[in-house]
Amino acid sequence: MSLGLEHYLVLSAALFSIGLYGALTKRSAVVILMSIELMLNATNIALVAFSRYIVPVLLTGQVFTIFSIVVAAAEATVGLAIIMAIYRSRETIDTTKIDLMKW
């Protein structure tokens, strides 16, 4: 059995779903951030797989992936800095306890 596009897409969709599940259910802000990274990386797999199988001559998907990795790194940096800031003022990163504002 050879590996086809669908295998990569299933892997990507599964990782994306795991990431989304983690982002929506976990309490620790750091774990949520990790889940978001998982979602972004799942997307990268899909992008590269599409690029390889749909437009093998062009490198569109790979280029897109490089941009998305850079953006994800910037977002993780800012996210961690904000988590540091909130830990300094609250001494917790449990998102259920960060509830000063609610509707």
Binding site: F16, I32, L33, I36, T43, V71, E75, T95
Partner: peptide
């Protein structure tokens, strides 16, 4: 914090 976490999910 709320903005960065929810914004991260939205951009993913």
């Amino acid at each position: 914090l709320k903005f960065v976490l929810l914004g991260g999910i939205a951009s993913a």
